[in-house]
Design a protein around this nucleic acid. Structure first.
Lengths: 215, 215
DNA sequence: CGCTAACTGGAGAAGCCATCTCCGGAAAGC
DNA sequence: GCTTTCCGGAGATGGCTTCTCCAGTTAGCG
């Protein structure tokens, strides 16, 4: 892509850039976009100055990391169209995407409107296109309630956010319970059993507090 | 409560205190606990100094406002125990509480672990006690799925948070759709129709962005 | 009606935090 | 070996919130 380079890129420079991108991936995934570029630099084992030489600002490096992640989701959305059973396809897509989001806080923030807005604006149309088709098929097959709409998927992912945060505290899989609950709400009738037990009452506070204002 | 006052409280002082509490109620409801005490003072039409003379800090005035709101919720939880139909009781409680939260962002933040932690720690045990009874009855009557637990209510309210924010953008009632979806997920089978149409696809971005980072 | 204790208001001090710049020193690679 | 490019991290900068201080005002008693 970058043609006419006056000098070939210095090896240490390229290595540091790669380290920064790796570090950004990890740090954004773990702490979300609240993380500072200084944090990323430290995590990459380079100085702040180096970070700012390679990327004009935090958005720039975030965009690079996000492009990969949102691309993967869009790909998932297309892939599941291959699945015969429309309900299974829908569930598969939701579970894959939720799994990605559970592991990547920055990604969750992007899809639900915090964080990089450009990237968010780009990802939804691509997803909604595939999901609409899925919903039409599922509705036609009677696999989902007739009043459900493709846009509801966006709301479902947004609502899973708090579930992810609760999961971080104690039960890494807790969100699966609530995804199942939401998906069962989309069903025309009769649900299977919920996966993952609910958090114990004694730990409710700890679970609700997960990741918010220390203590 | 305050006995031995050396002097009777000056009328203007009492009036300003009342104004501050009113203003706090409104400002916290609208903007959440991110609002500053200065904001509240301005909204009350008094100076910052006055605010700080009446309350040592933001927590203090927040505690006063919250006590009312959480008390009302605990009361609701007890009240609905009177309703014969256990499912109806559960739905009624959820709708009342959600309505309160939709109108009061500070309240929502408290119940889900942002904001005042003392108040949060106080409210849940009271609610869970009533709700547990409700769930037991509903389960016994076959009105909810057997694997549902009372703690799931906390998760449901947490998950409604994003729904409230989406609602603020365009359709004030949108959250009702998603509360219905969640409650239907608790049902053993067959749902009624969802209230409120989903947000139009063209407005998805606007809806998701609601209330986050201007633009 | 006048006096004084008590209250008011808002400018600004103090602290915090993230973003981004600068430049002496290091080392890559012809 | 020498020049050119890059490194690192201290700290300048700016924004934001919390809370203080005090000159000026006012309530309400005597």
């Amino acid at each position: 892509m970058n043609e006419e380079r006056a000098r070939p890129v210095r090896k240490d420079s390229a290595r540091n850039r790669a380290r920064l991108v790796d570090a950004a991936r990890e740090v954004f995934a773990e702490r979300g976009f609240g993380a500072t570029l200084d944090d990323i630099a430290r995590h990459a084992g380079v100085g702040t100055g180096t970070a700012y030489r390679h990327f004009p600002n935090k958005q720039a490096i975030a965009a690079e990391v996000l492009a990969e992640a949102t691309g993967a989701i869009a790909q998932d959305a297309r892939d599941v169209l291959e699945i015969e059973d429309s309900w299974l396809a829908l569930v598969t897509f939701c579970e894959r995407t939720a799994t990605r989001q559970a592991a990547d806080r920055g990604l969750y923030e992007t899809l639900t409107g915090q964080g990089n807005q450009d990237e968010q604006a780009k990802i939804w149309p691509r997803v909604v296109a595939s999901v609409s088709e899925l919903f039409d098929r599922a509705r036609a097959a009677g696999a989902i309630r007739p009043d459900a709409a493709a846009q509801d998927i966006a709301a479902i992912f947004a609502m899973l956010g708090p579930a992810f945060e609760m999961s971080r505290a104690i039960t890494p899989d807790l969100w699966r319970r609530y995804l199942a609950l939401l998906l069962d709400g989309l069903r025309p009738a009769g649900q299977p059993q919920l996966p993952v037990p609910p958090p114990p009452v004694e730990q409710l506070d700890a679970v609700l507090f997960a990741g918010k204002r220390g203590a």
